[in-house]
Amino acid sequence: MIQTKGQFQSAKRFLFLVGDIGQFTLRFFREGFHKPFEWKEILKQCGEVGYRSLSLVGVTAFIMGLVLTIQSRPTLVEFGAESWLPAMVSVSLIREIGPVITALICAGKIGSRIGAELGSMRVTEQIDAMEVSGTNPFKYLVTTRVLATSLMLPLLVIFADTIALYGSFLAVNIKGAVSFQLFFNQVFETLEFSDLIPSILKSFFFGFIIGIIGCYMGYNSKKGTEGVGKSANSAVVVASLMVFILDLIAVQITDLFYEL
């Protein structure tokens, strides 16, 4: 009985959380596209999210391409289909692995940063102070960060895909000898618009959800410094989960339009 009551409370809390995040998102749309725009803050956040995450995303993507190619090679060699390696790796990277891994890295790096930053601002009452001083903290803190993550994640995914393909090319050349031109010819021979466009579109939504979850968790942080850590942690966990859920929805929608 007690256990059932506890489960009911958990479900209730979850539904409250979902409703709160929904309202938070609606507020973003209400306030995000009305003047005045915080251009400087948007650019600053773009730099923080995009440029400063590039090295981490780049290294991860390079290793990802390299490892995926090396791991896939023996199976393809067994079937005598080694020449399909560029095609197979490129489709895997562009369609799925590139956007999802980049989004997860960003959920970890950017989501936690935003959650911790806004959380500490909340617990140190800086957000309250902004409200008192007449600045709209939501517009200044949340809108700018969500826009920055939404705009920068697709770019990071493009970089990640490019670097991962280069890593794959190097991996192919460890065992065999394939020219740069032949490798990329085979890659683009296989790829279609239906591979690239949905991948970029879904990475835009991944960025959006990472920004929204990070900001929500930080903006609604409670219980002092403990709450800051909790916000950062929740931001990463929920954003990562949401990335997978969005990916599932994106695959269904892509299949609907492009018949994968």
Binding site: C46, G50, Y51, L54, L155, I158, F188, L191, L196
Partner: peptide, 19 residues
Amino acid sequence: LGIFITLGTICFVAALYLL
């Protein structure tokens, strides 16, 4: 940031062109 965005856009446009 400008360099980052420009390079990213070039990669994207190049991919679109090749496809």
